[in-house]
Design a protein around this nucleic acid. Structure first.
Length: 421
RNA sequence: GGUGAGGUGGGUGAGUGGCUGAAACCAAUAGUUUGCUAAACUGUCGUACGGGUUAAACUGUACCGGGGGUUCGAAUCCCCCCCUCACCGCCA
């Protein structure tokens, strides 16, 4: 949620940013400004009236104590007379505030100045790309065939137990999941992130906090009996750890593994074959809360952190700076990491790292005391390090050899073998 | 699921209708002092939204789990909801 101060002081900047994000309903800006002014006007009047009522009420008590009953009754009448007006003001205020809030929630975050203009993924900017491309000559099997060949993943079995998009990992496949999760967590912890093991279901307030509600409700599995939501990412429970808190020491660096549940309503076709898109998958997430002046530095660090991780897995990757039109609603700057699937001959997104600035924390009221002792919103950032399915897909495809899948060096201690065969 | 107790500021915890935005203690923080890896003393110390100011000072309103009600006036009384704890039941 954008801060209301922006509307009072930087209207031009606001409009410019919204345009870059291809936001259409620009008239909302003027409506919000008008509502804000009205709100302040009504509040001033309401507060004044409330003040006079409070004074009169206090006098009733004093007069009664002195035994001046008639004068007290007079004051009572004064208060009673103002009561309707006071109630009216309160209702007016509530209406205006609800309206204001609703409109404010419709506006996306403003893009950072480095965000390229554009509307579609084609307009994303390639920041860096690893040089070498995998040299697969003899065989070039896609991961779903490799998974069948080595009995790693049974997609059909998942259909029977639950439904499509719920793969069952078996034997070496299951072991690889465990190895990757442990490796990713250890890698993050070594960089200073604190490990959390959060709940996999959250309440409504948490889902609102990170912005899954109200607009992305259909993407989450909902346990209606208790009104809990299955988390679509560990970002939700982990970020909410600090909801309504004033943080004592920045930065806060957290990492968590969790399964992720996504309904992915409306996705079909060859793009979702195998592990490319599933309803339940595993991911290790990193989250940071940062001083507003240092959040972009933190973002670059996170990008570097993930880049090194991908290099250690010997996967070919590229880093994209998303254009205004392709960025998420809440983000100010997003870098996507894609790894090249040699067998499918396409890039697959494996991580997305974003700075949300104060867009999330404004809604969740996550703050700190600045140098002058004033309470300010912190900046929040997060990224995947990493999402497993597509990493698994690329490891299988890109490291396939006639002898089996040769695992990268760093995974061997975790997998306790060097080949999947 | 049943029964009981309870939800107050960073923490413990007092407060059962006006003198309470809230005692006391602890923590935190600033300073004073003592020549020692600390103690003593003093001050400051909730949040939000307004007004005000270059910025402060200052000032108004709201908030004692959430919502509603009674009353001139509510942390305090009433109703509904949520949550926590204890015991019982069930159980990985």
């Amino acid at each position: 949620m954008l801060s209301i101060q922006l509307f009072r002081t930087d209207k031009e900047l606001l409009l410019e940013g919204l345009k870059k994000k291809n936001f259409k309903d620009l008239h909302l800006v003027d409506e919000i400004i008008a509502l804000d002014e009205e709100r302040r006007k009504v509040q001033a009047e309401s507060d004044t009236l409330a003040a006079t009522i409070n004074v009169a009420s206090k006098q009733v008590g004093m007069l009664m104590a002195q035994g001046k009953k008639e004068e007290a009754d007079l004051q009572k009448a004064t208060v009673a007379a103002s009561k309707d007006a006071a109630k009216n003001f309160i209702q007016q205020l509530a209406t205006i505030e609800t309206d204001l809030q609703e409109k404010l929630l419709k506006l996306p975050n403003l893009p950072h100045s480095s965000v390229p203009a554009g509307k579609t993924p084609e307009d994303n900017e390639v920041v860096r790309q690893s040089k070498d491309t995998p040299n697969l000559t003899a065989q070039k099997l896609p991961h779903w065939e490799l998974a069948a060949k080595y009995e790693l993943i049974d997609f059909e079995l998942g259909n029977k137990i639950t439904g499509s998009g719920f793969p069952v990992y078996i034997g070496q496949g299951a072991r690889l999941q465990r190895a990757l999760i442990s490796y990713f967590l250890d890698y993050n912890i070594a960089a200073g992130y604190k490990e959390y093991y959060p709940p996999y279901m959250v309440n409504e307030a948490s889902a609102y906090g990170t912005g899954q509600l109200p607009d992305k409700e259909g993407q989450m599995y909902h346990a209606t009996e208790d009104n809990f939501y299955l988390i679509p990412t560990a970002e939700v429970p982990v970020t909410n750890i600090y909801r309504d808190e004033i943080i004592k020491e920045l930065p806060v660096m957290m990492t968590a593994y969790s399964p992720c549940f996504r309904r992915e309503a409306g996705s079909y076709g060859k793009d979702v074959r195998g592990l490319n898109r599933v309803h339940q998958f595993d991911k290790v997430e990193i989250v940071q809360f940062s001083h507003p002046g240092k959040s972009y530095e933190a973002l670059e660090q996170m990008v570097f952190h993930i880049e090194k991780l991908l290099q250690s897995l010997q996967l070919q990757y590229r880093i994209l700076r998303l254009c205004g039109g392709d960025m998420s609603f809440t983000s100010a700057l997003t870098y996507d990491f894609e790894v090249y699937s040699a067998a499918q001959e396409r890039w697959l997104e494996v991580s997305s790292v974003s700075n949300f600035e104060s867009f999330q924390t404004n809604r969740m009221k996550i703050r700190f005391k600045d140098e002058n002792g004033k309470t300010q919103l912190v900046h929040s950032l997060n990224g995947s390090s990493l999402a497993l399915p597509r990493i698994v897909a690329c490891i299988l495809e890109n490291h396939q050899t006639p002898e089996g899948v040769k695992l990268p060096e760093v995974l061997i201690p975790y997998y306790r073998d060097s080949f999947i065969k």
